[in-house]
Design a protein around this nucleic acid. Structure first.
Lengths: 215, 215, 215, 215
DNA sequence: CGGTAACCGAGACGGTACGTCCGGTCTTCCT
DNA sequence: AGGAAGACCGGACGTACCGTCTCGGTTACCG
């Protein structure tokens, strides 16, 4: 997403001939992203002015635009670089139910979803944005749940015929819909109900007891 | 949502004293909404300028603003007036599976979801928009699925302990996520898989056979 | 110079069909020009920001740009509409020497010359600007002096063979050069010397007495 | 004008201690000035970007700024280093009229005046620039004419009471005004008229015959 | 001959003005 | 009175340029 002018990540053996000139201040990327994230949180997408971002980052507008070609791209990146939960930092509780609740608790604390609403327009129109966005906010989350389910499968917790891939897709969809579309909090109560009446039954093949009021 | 200045829909017996002057051209409402919808489809939310809407509708901007107080409200209305599927027009196939597939097929043909992405920002910030939006795009859809599930329950197709409210909430979430966030089509294949491996198992308490690749 | 969208100055007999829509606020032109002139005086050409002009005029930038297509054009206009001395307001002292000294005294008080320096670049590149500029700052001034000389000729003060047109051209050139290029004040001392050793001798054909240090 | 960091022109007896390090590439000065002059001619003052100057000179911007502290200074220098006519290279024709015509013919070929328009703003604001500018473009030219007049005086061509200093100041003013302000060419016709109806009469005290249209 | 300091091209940096665009309001005339 | 046209304010957008600073690399003097 970010413009990688200085890329040359892995200089080939044929001398990639590093471009001359002053190197980009790598630290500035983070400062700008941080400023963008703060303003996004404080004022929302429309309130996040590029001038304001530059000012808060102590940067010139040119510096911002040299690295991100548009406001949308900057926003995407500032969301991407938000801490993403990965499977490694997810404690293996040994229980599928506990693992899932942990994920939903974490998801409930993330503010990404509130902010990304302003981006969906861009996602629709700019293919380049779409793929990055998709990887981070869709595939990544599905993968996380899928991993937890896989652990459970290895422990023999899951039903033999369960479509774990599909089940893994249900969780992020529900989280997103609740936070972004329905605008209701992803609280513990809803998390438990989601796990106990949807995810677990699907994964383990064991029907659950009913409960009231979903949406 | 629309400003009902001319309301007086049903003139009471106390002589409503029709205001003098030219009556609002009722047909204009539709022309404007149509223009808005077209532009929304062609250029997305940002590309749908109020100037462009007015021009295409052959109206002045003032005319548009006299009827809708803001761009967001106009957008909401132009989405609302899109044909919404109601339980009444849903043929009772007598089979839960068929009912669900019918719903998803219809949902797959709707373009609403693509368009509403631009609104989520407004939904976040303007409470007034939120409720209308929620009723139409969240509760309405959940209710539709819920009705179908209720029919099935009355036929004895559902498991006794199934949380039908929750199950009904899963379907719109999956549809929205797939179309708006993942930007993949809501095709027959996915619909079947969703029904067979998620909705039906949850509703009927009968585990299903596996299948590949969800997201 | 100003964009005359509302022109239709003299509606032809074929009914020019006045365009509908809000008319331009004619008063705004003057407010903007006034703001521009003030800022030009206070801060110079570079300091006269378009944003500042708009703000001081209580106008939006779009309003300014709707009327003048660029900063240069606005500046030219704001200089043009500065009070220009015309032959009518010039008291006929009955003496060529007094008339000339009056002109130079007035010229010494004008700040136009200081301000127009920033424009000469534009004058060079934009033919449209050139003609307006020329009429106001060149021809107009020459004409003024020419009138005074003509009065004198009618009184018989001038030499028969004197090239009054050429003589009239000398005065503005000297004023401009002294103020803009040499950046020295157009004070009474210089004015007298200019009149007594250059203009009068040329006009009357009567050589003058010497004096020291010109430039 | 140019920054003489490497100066040490005349090493004093107190051990000038030449600084170590690479010497400045003296040839670069000329390359840069040449680039500046070309761009000035091609695109005018505003179009002469410092980036463009550096690029065309095959230099870095730092190299340019190490030698000239600002765009204005560079411009002044690039104009200054244009060939200036000095009294020595002016053939003594033995006739004041011929001498003057020679000067004006040369002046007519110079492009300096067109280019310096962009500088007048800077001249107004920066005293440092003013003096250099003044010396070169004002005093120098006046001096040249003054010299020619002096030759004539020694030959007895001039009137006893003529204010030769003032007369010498008229010529550059007229040239500048015609070229920069009036934007008309300094052609032979105008030169002759200027000499015959203004300069010569003033210098020799001999009135001339009339002629039409000056400005 | 190796160190050191000033040079070099390239280009990123902070700041700031420019001119464009849009949302929402207000005004003018016409029907 | 309602409607079409369009001017109005405010303010964000993305571009361009100035003058400075930094980078890695290249001279040339000096010890």
């Amino acid at each position: 997403m970010r413009e990688d002018a200085t890329a040359a990540a892995v200089p080939g053996p044929d001398a990639p001939a590093r471009r001359p000139g002053r190197r980009r201040d790598g630290a500035k990327d983070d400062v700008i992203l941080q400023a963008a994230r703060e303003l996004l949180t404080e004022r929302g997408y429309d309130g996040m002015t590029m001038d304001a971002v530059a000012e808060r980052a102590g940067a010139g507008k040119a510096t911002v635009y040299r690295r991100w070609p548009s406001k949308v791209q900057l926003t995407v990146d500032s969301l991407l670089c938000s801490k993403q939960v990965t499977i490694d930092e997810l404690p293996d509780t040994g229980s599928l139910r506990e693992d899932l609740l942990t994920i939903f608790t974490m998801a409930g604390r993330m503010k990404n979803d509130d902010l990304m609403s302003g981006l969906l327009t861009a996602v629709r129109d700019e293919p380049e944005v779409r793929s990055v966005f998709h990887e981070q906010f869709v595939a990544g989350r599905v993968r996380l749940v899928r991993e937890v389910l896989e652990r459970a499968r290895l422990r023999g917790e899951t039903a033999p015929g369960a479509d774990l891939d599909m089940v893994a897709a249900v969780a992020p969809a529900m989280v997103h819909y609740r936070k972004v579309v329905a605008h209701r909090p992803m609280d513990a109560e809803f998390a438990e109900r989601l796990v106990d009446t949807v995810i677990l039954p699907l994964a383990t093949g064991t029907p659950a007891d009913a409960a009231p009021d979903p949406a």
